[in-house]
Design a protein around this nucleic acid. Structure first.
Lengths: 341, 341
DNA sequence: ATGAAAGCGCTAACAA
DNA sequence: TTGTTAGCGCTTTCAT
């Protein structure tokens, strides 16, 4: 049977309170008393019941992290970083996988797992603003990625438009004139792909380079297979591009596989850029140039946002809203865009 | 402020119990009463406090999953599968990252997060039997991977020796005579690498092929960089192998990068096999032949083991121990070992 | 410095 | 069918 504070108290011949004091390392306990109680604790093998403690304190020490999937290493990295950042504040992380499905995301956003977690970090894909409207506001919510609509929650995302501009400028700087955009639900205005397409368009417009829709190959998913499929489609359409800016690294990797199958050289025949900086891009036959969002900062900001709100429960969410938090990103130049090709 | 059962009860002018009944969908409630209570619930925006429920029921609905890291896609896949399997039984998963460090693993094994979780799934790397000796036995523990020593816990792992034999036989079947083993802490008898080396040794012995220690390149870690480093070391040592069996896919991928750098063709000059079947192996310039453990079954068995123990709290752990559970594995033949080379 | 007692929000006996 | 009551194990005033 489980041993509780009461058991220890009886054993040590003291009150519950005293045992609690020892367990929680309070001041003002005589050393003699401390050792006596500690003795009883050890003998009985007492371990505090965290659930009870949580009930009493109103905090659980758990933060929910809802990600679309772990199959994309970007999210795995993010999870890693969040767990790390949470641990720094003695928090553990409950991981929820939404599959990028709106229903699931809405559930998490509404606080499905509420009351077990002190806060929720949600990385939405299909979530819509109205899904968060009448949210039970108890546990702070932070969005990872673009905020869908103007909602009173912190959203942590790099500047996708600017990052895309950086990427495309890098490509045109190589002398490439037909820069394609590969992947992403490019017609969904809320999806990051849309913002990256925007950056892509802006740079090409500035430089007087054509940016016809034929140079965009949207995809359903964002996986390697989707990239391969999109690349194939684009090559078969005739008038192939001389550079590809992929929505993310996985798509870029899928595309590169197709290029290699067709005997096209990267970067000579086709420069390729990705987005996310997953480790896989650093070890392929051709290493992948990419935009690297600062994942650790993203994670840190998310945790901090939640803890700040937790510490100021009196102030309304609106009043402390920082709004969009913009972590840094860097362009990492690798073989897939090397030299002038 | 939070609204509790009591608040709803007052509002509806009924007892707490009745509200509880409605919330829990009990039988024997008049429809009239049900709607009346439901009304109050909706008006007040009541949501049950799960912590309190857990305290009362002695169950939290949370299972801890402790993995070394998420950077290795094998573990990411595993996490994915476990979260899925848990969800099927209305359980959520608390994810703990141990970094493969013994101290951390021991903490988890001892039930560090105990009392918040109903059970613990631990994938140990450096854990030693004594770390689990005087375990607080409250929450069931399942080991993912080989069991370190003969402990009274279920351990779920494929037959690593047999799988390695399958792999090496595939390689020798290609006519390769110098089959190297790459990676893993091969001198730690408890580490899976040791078992795979054993399988490797057995096959080579049977076939009268040399298996000198020079054909083993141990590594510290199990990452792509470790694979690259090990491959380099082996090539530089002279008398290069004509086939490589890597401890895992990441090491194989690192090795292939080095081979490509040196102008060696895979599989013509060097056949390469991995282990784990991570998605990355299906999209490289040369797709990777590998051993694919049945991850979904591993996950399912882990969850089932915990639930079974939870449902029979009276029976001792020892009496219901299934011991080693052995999920299936398959050899997936891809380009890296194609034809006879 | 230590003890007594109330109560966090819920469920489960038992009563009515 | 619904209400009353007693805890689950802990922290926290308030006494002492």
């Amino acid at each position: 049977m489980r041993v509780s504070l009461k058991d220890v108290a009886e054993r040590a011949g003291v009150s519950i309170k005293t045992v609690s004091n020892v367990v929680n390392n309070y001041q003002h306990i005589t050393p003699a008393m401390r050792t006596r109680v500690q003795h009883a604790i050890d003998e009985l093998g007492y371990r505090p019941n965290l659930t009870a403690r949580h009930l009493r304190k109103g905090r659980t020490g758990i933060i929910a992290l809802a990600l679309p999937e772990l199959a994309n290493p970007y999210y795995a990295d993010l999870a890693d970083a969040v767990i790390d950042a949470a641990a720094q504040h003695d928090y553990t992380v409950l991981l929820d996988l939404t599959g990028g499905r709106r229903r699931q995301e809405a559930q998490v956003g509404q606080g499905f797992s509420a009351r077990v977690t002190d806060g929720v970090i949600l990385s939405p894909v299909e979530l819509r603003p109205e899904d968060l409207r009448n949210r039970d506001d108890d546990a702070p919510l932070v969005l990872l990625g673009e905020r869908p609509g103007d909602l009173p929650y912190d959203a942590i995302a790099i500047d996708n438009v600017a990052a895309a501009r950086t990427a495309v400028r890098h490509l045109t700087g190589l002398g490439r004139r037909r820069v394609a955009f590969l992947g992403g639900h490019t017609n969904d205005a809320a999806h990051p792909a849309h913002l990256r397409v925007q950056g892509w368009r802006e740079v090409l417009a500035t430089q007087g380079v054509d940016a016809p829709d034929a140079l965009i190959a949207p995809t359903d998913g964002c996986d390697r297979a989707d990239g391969a499929e999109a690349m194939t489609r684009m090559l078969d359409a005739g008038e192939p591009p001389d550079a590809v800016f992929a929505y993310n690294d996985l798509i870029a990797i899928g595309a590169m596989r197709v290029l290699s199958d067709r005997g096209m050289r990267v970067p000579e025949d086709m420069a390729v850029m990705g987005f996310d900086d997953i480790a896989e891009g650093r070890f392929g036959a051709v290493t992948l140039t990419t935009i690297a969002p600062d994942k650790r900062t993203i994670a840190r900001l998310a945790i901090e946002s939640i803890l700040t709100r937790l510490q100021n429960p009196d102030r309304t969410a609106e009043s402390m809203r920082k709004g969009e938090l913009r972590p840094e990103y860097r362009l990492l130049e690798r073989e897939s865009t090397l030299g002038r090709g």
